[in-house]
Amino acid sequence: MADAVLRLNDVRRLFDVSAPWLARILSGTGPRMLKAVDGVTFEIARGETFALVGESGCGKSTVARLVVGLYEPSSGSIEIDGTDIASLKTRKAQAPVRRRVQMVFQDPYASLNPRWRVKDIIAEPIRTHGLIRGEAAIRARVDELLRQVSLTPADGDKYPHAFSGGQRQRISIARALASEPEFLVLDEPTSALDVSVQAQILNLMKDLQRRLGLTYLFISHNLAVIYHVSDKVGVMYLGRLVEVAAKADLFARPQHPYTRLLLDTVPDLAMTGRERVAVRGEVPNPIDPPSGCAFHPRCPFANERCKTERPSLLAAGGNMVACHAVQEGRLPPWGGAA
């Protein structure tokens, strides 16, 4: 794809979760590394919404933080608009690229400084990058941003505590837009919100995308939300992508057993009375992931090869799938969940 806004090449991110140095010497244990993201490759084309789905500990939030520069990758490269971020050495050199990638966080109560007025929160990116000069012009821009997210200019003079969760998320979005970004990373932007408010925020995100031509990386654990917003979906499990596919293909013909498991857990609102397939086990501790395919202890189709050899992401029926059973054709066709 020529016009990829974001490209991740075999990105890894390790975290040192070792015991303190002295305790390690005394107990004779070595350093322990948590592979939060373990070799992830994908790209996002301009104007599309790429969704990452997975359960806690799968590394999807780490990917989000890698993309916006809150973490440095341990290895691999991240390209924004074709520029490898690592090639820009100083904060100053990175600033113009970084400005174009902004983020909306999960917790609307923690993501706004409680001691700042809303107008100052929204104006912070404008002032930081010197996008507009002059207080009156900045205020006019803040008012415009407030209106863009369906708040009123009068709201700018209040403090965050005066707002509900949904309104705070609108303020967060306005702040992200103030940098005039082309790419937004949305890390579970609606999972702390009530469903009726979630609908408002999802609609707003879609409106803004159409109006401003934004590209989204949308992180969520909710498959129904992902179905609603995304064009392309990546499924993550224990730091690795196990399946990447266009939305329609993924939901109609999920290949990886883990994708199928996730689809099986979606509550049946249509009340068809379908009996759920019993799901086995829980997500293992990511510090000590299983060998081979990390999903093998929970997989009904696992064999010896799955326990030892790590599968790589290969094309299968239009999707990209990391599964030996899929490659060997051992998997039964998908019967459908809902």
Binding site: A199, N203, F251, L269
Partner: peptide, 18 residues
């Protein structure tokens, strides 16, 4: 306002306000 897999809505029906 609950999104569901298989719907073809561009926008979710929303209740305005809170």
């Amino acid at each position: 306002s609950i999104p569901s897999i298989g719907d073809t809505l561009e926008r979710l029906p929303q209740i305005d306000g809170a």
